[in-house]
Design a protein around this nucleic acid. Structure first.
Length: 111
DNA sequence: CCACTGACGAGTG
DNA sequence: GCACTCGCCAGTG
């Protein structure tokens, strides 16, 4: 079993709009808690516009948007998230405590 | 098949 | 709060 791009994309697609997940979280959900990098590399290979993967819902552990290969992509990601209701603070980060996706949150109505 | 290439995370000083 | 180290592995040419 390996942490393939396909596995990563499948998990990213499960992130609901208005919620975000961290690279490490995706890796952990896939069963590879220390493979955060693989997640980033997988998303880097996406090339937005050619996939149905909501890559913009994936942020780093600090709740900030990571650098992309394409300059300006960071702003693009932020715009997409804000359009989904995610709010960024003055540091350019978002509140993971409020916007981080939690799979368990779905089985239990909790706000 | 080998070498190079990357959207990270947590810890230490 | 910043600079650095180590751990991690699938694509692509």
């Amino acid at each position: 079993m390996s942490l393939t791009h396909d596995t990563i994309y499948a998990l990213v697609r499960r992130i609901p709009a208005g919620r975000v997940a961290t690279y490490g979280q995706i890796a952990a959900l896939a069963g590879f808690p220390r493979h955060a990098r693989q997640v980033g590399y997988a998303l880097a290979a996406l090339h937005d516009g050619h996939t149905d993967v909501p890559w913009h819902r994936v942020v780093n552990a600090g709740g900030a948007v990571s650098r992309r290969a394409d300059p300006g992509g960071e702003d693009y990601q932020r715009i997409l998230l804000e359009a989904e209701g995610v709010v960024f603070d003055e540091h350019g980060c978002l509140s993971l405590s409020r916007f981080q996706w939690r799979p368990d949150q779905y089985s239990n109505s909790e706000s």
